[in-house]
Design a protein around this nucleic acid. Structure first.
Length: 553
RNA sequence: GGCCCGUUGGUCAAGCGGUUUAAGACUCCGCCCUUUCACGGCGGCAACACGAGUUCGAUUCUCGUACGGGUCACCA
């Protein structure tokens, strides 16, 4: 036996033909896209994941294709605890429907295993094939030796990498290899590049357009010393066998594209369509930069969960960045399901976008404003259950009260838009609850510019109101009483008259309203006062007014 | 540094050689509406990175420069 492939892979019995038969071409209609979500369990899920995933998911489902998930766990050193849980939560929270792949209860689909560490046997079949055809070889260089090579290359200003005369193990004889293996030397499998740096390849990226980078000349790794494949090799083998039609990934892969193209060629396969999108950027001083996992907490999707952004809003926001006509569509169809939007690849921008919190906030406000009080109540309750136990209890205790509060200004033609994210809701609602009520009266400072509105008058107005408030009044009667009260102290009850001759009055009915608002709510902002008072109930309002009147004593 | 990608207002972007006095959305500002705060309505500020070339004509095509980003791992 003088065959290197058999020497290295004596245990490999399967053949490429077997695998070809086991994973046949998918029976899908013309134009159906097969895409995948291929996370590695080495970190948290971030906006970039959402970006790629959304493209892949839309592409597959809009074309009647398949969207599957494959776990890229070939870097076992960096694997972190709980990462797969994060992945499942992500898919669930963002309502991204997976058709096949690895799932919590096991695997679904005929193209598995969908976990790379369980596909060793498959990778070895093709690694063996490459070796037997002289397209790959074992390399015995240690990491230290490789460092040394890089250093030497730097010294003579040559490009780094394992190639040409630097590739020491490229042409080892069968005997040399056998001796080293018999000596127990560890090795990796390298791809034997057949590229010419003076030639260029032509690849059409569906986002970036026609690309013509130089051919790859480096002998990249195929299998690592632990026997697991590198990203390059796993990508080629898996996306071929799983019959992926479109590979959606970040533009950081642009530079390794020649390697992948070459591997596909060496295995005699046609490469899939590539869609390599730009990154989400962040403003950093004067310039922009890629959002960084280390420095930018807002990159992690968890961050939005904590703040109480609804996943759907993040999706909406990303959609506006993906397809610029999405916004227009959403404006015309405020209640339509996002999935009914006619997403197109052509609209994907080749350049990176700066993450814009203002825009997200705007989308979020609009989205939340359209929720029913039941819906928002559930969002708030679910959020509080995780992040604010005390608030959760309060919400649970009297559901009707909470829902009534949340229903103010909701449901009409012009809903209020004062909630940007769920975490704000506690503060928004707090003055309705004695245990959360922390008044900030700022009185009479609020009326700094109207010195005639004295503490004495403010107090009198509050006192009078105790006697006239009637919870049975309808909104007209309710407001008429405030107007009457205004007139009593020479505050204008008609805003138009007041604006014409402000000097004739101490203030206006708006000021009287403000006094009552602050006295009852302890703040200058609140939704419609008539509704607020009605929900609070007479007893509570009376207590609040008293508390206000005697606040300095 | 080599290689690759990108560059329209503060932000996202429309534009695919003339119909553009360059859309729209967000932010900011002003006015109106209004019992407050919002909402809503109306209006305003504000851009084709720079230099050559191709062309009758360039935001649109080509090249260069600048700037920004990515990548050069037994990470993906």
């Amino acid at each position: 036996m003088k065959n290197i492939a058999d020497l290295i892979f004596p245990d490999v019995k399967l053949t490429p033909e077997d695998l070809e038969k086991k994973y046949p071409k998918r029976d899908l209609k013309d134009g159906a896209c097969v895409t995948r979500f291929a996370p590695s369990p080495t970190g948290f899920i971030h906006l970039g994941n959402l970006w790629s995933t959304l493209i892949g998911e839309r592409l597959a489902h809009l074309s009647g294709g398949v969207f599957y998930i494959r776990l890229e766990d070939t870097d076992q050193k960096r694997e972190i605890e709980g990462a797969t849980r994060g992945i499942f939560n992500f898919l669930k929270n963002f309502d991204l429907n997976i058709d096949e792949g690895f799932q919590q209860g096991g695997e679904v689909g005929n193209y598995g295993p969908y976990i790379q560490s369980e596909r060793m046997e498959i990778y070895r079949v093709y690694a063996k094939k490459l070796v037997s055809e002289g397209k790959a070889y074992p390399c015995f260089c240690s990491p230290e030796e490789l460092d040394k090579i890089r250093e030497n290359q730097a010294a003579v200003k040559e490009n780094t990498g394992y190639y040409g005369k630097w590739a020491k193990c490229r042409d080892l004889s069968f005997e040399e290899i056998k001796n080293k293996i018999d000596n127990g030397e560890s090795y990796i499998i390298r791809f034997k590049s057949f590229g010419d740096e003076n030639k260029r390849i032509a690849v059409n990226d569906l986002i970036k357009g026609l690309l013509d980078p130089p051919e790859n000349i480096r002998d990249e790794l195929v299998l690592k010393s632990d026997g697991l494949p590198t990203y390059h090799f796993a990508h080629v083998v898996d996306d071929y066998l799983m019959r992926t039609t479109h590979v959606v990934r970040g533009e950081e892969y642009l530079s390794t594209l020649p390697v992948h193209v070459q591997m596909f060629e060496a295995l005699g396969w046609q490469s899939p369509h590539y869609m390599q999108h730009a990154h989400l950027l962040k403003r950093d001083g004067e310039s922009k930069r890629k959002l960084s996992k280390r420095k930018d907490p807002e990159l992690a999707l968890d961050y939005y969960g904590k703040t109480g952004y609804i996943p759907q809003c993040l999706k909406e926001y990303i959609m506006t960045l993906l397809n610029s006509n999405y916004e227009e569509w959403r404006l015309a169809n405020p209640h339509e399901d996002l999935n009914n939007f006619d997403f197109t690849v052509e609209k994907l921008s080749p350049s990176g976008a700066l993450f814009d919190l203002n825009k997200l906030n705007d989308i979020s406000k609009n989205y939340i404003s359209l929720l029913s009080s039941d819906e928002i109540y559930n969002y708030v309750k679910n959020w509080a259950e995780i992040y604010d136990e005390d608030f959760y209890k309060i919400l649970e205790e009297n559901q009707k009260y909470a829902k009534d509060i949340l229903s103010i200004g909701r449901g009409g033609e012009k809903p209020r838009k004062d909630i940007t994210f769920i975490r704000e809701v506690k503060n928004y609602m707090s003055f309705f609850y004695e245990e959360l009520f922390e008044p900030d009266y700022k009185m009479p400072e609020v009326f700094e510019k109207k010195p005639e509105i004295t503490e004495d008058i403010i107090k009198k107005i509050a006192e009078d109101y105790i006697n006239i408030y009637d919870s049975n009044d309808d909104s007209t009667a309710w407001f008429d009483k405030i107007k009457t009260l205004a007139g009593k102290y020479n505050f204008a009850s008609d805003m138009k008259l007041y604006r014409k001759n402000p000097q004739d009055y101490k203030g206006s009915v708006a000021d009287v309203s403000m006094i009552l608002r602050i006295a009852v709510c302890g703040r200058q902002n609140s939704p419609d006062m008539y509704d607020v008072f009605k929900i609070m109930g007479k007893e509570r309002i009376m207590k609040r007014l008293e508390r206000f009147i005697f606040r300095n004593e």
